[in-house]
C-alpha cells in the first residue's frame, strides 16, 4: 500500500516537473532571444531612444554678450563753449602807429573823431 502511495506521489512530482519544463519552453518560444543581423555584433546596450537619435549634437553655448552698438558720434562738449585761446581766452589786437604819433595817449573817442573828420564831411 505504502508503495502505491509513494508511486502516486512520484508520478505527481514528475507531472509537475514536466509542466514546469513545458511552461519554460513555451516562454522561450514566445520571447526569443534577440539575434543580431549577420555580421553585426549583438549590441551590449539597448539602442538609444529615437528622441536621442534625432536630437542635435550638443553645441557649446556661446557666451552671452551685450550687443555691440556703435558709439553715437557727438561733438565733444567743451563746457558748452569754444575756447579758442589755449592759455587765456583773451585776445590782444596790435595797434600799429605808422607815422610815429603816440597813439597810446589818444582815447578811442579822439581817434574816431579825427578819422571821421578826415577829408571834411561836406
Amino acid at each position: 500500500m505504502s508503495a502505491n502511495i509513494h508511486m502516486g506521489k512520484l508520478e505527481e512530482l514528475l507531472d509537475r516537473v514536466k509542466r514546469n519544463r513545458l511552461k519554460l519552453a513555451n516562454e522561450r518560444i514566445l520571447r526569443p532571444e534577440p539575434k543580431a543581423p549577420e555580421g553585426l555584433p549583438i549590441p551590449s546596450e539597448p539602442p538609444p531612444a529615437i528622441e536621442e537619435e534625432l536630437a542635435p549634437p550638443p553645441v557649446e553655448a556661446a557666451p552671452i554678450t551685450e550687443p555691440v552698438m556703435p558709439e553715437p558720434v557727438m561733438p565733444e562738449p567743451v563746457d558748452e563753449e569754444v575756447r579758442t585761446f589755449e592759455s587765456t581766452p583773451v585776445a590782444s589786437g596790435p595797434v600799429a602807429q605808422m607815422d610815429g604819433h603816440p597813439t597810446r595817449k589818444w582815447t578811442l573817442k579822439a581817434v574816431l573823431n579825427r578819422a571821421w573828420n578826415l577829408g571834411g564831411r561836406s
Binding site: 583773451v90 585776445a91 589786437g93 595797434v95 582815447t107 578811442l108 573817442k109
Partner: peptide, 9 residues
C-alpha cells in the same frame, strides 16, 4: 576812457 587798443583787442 578806453584807448584805441580796446578797439583793436
Amino acid at each position: 576812457p578806453p584807448g584805441v587798443e580796446a578797439l583793436a583787442d
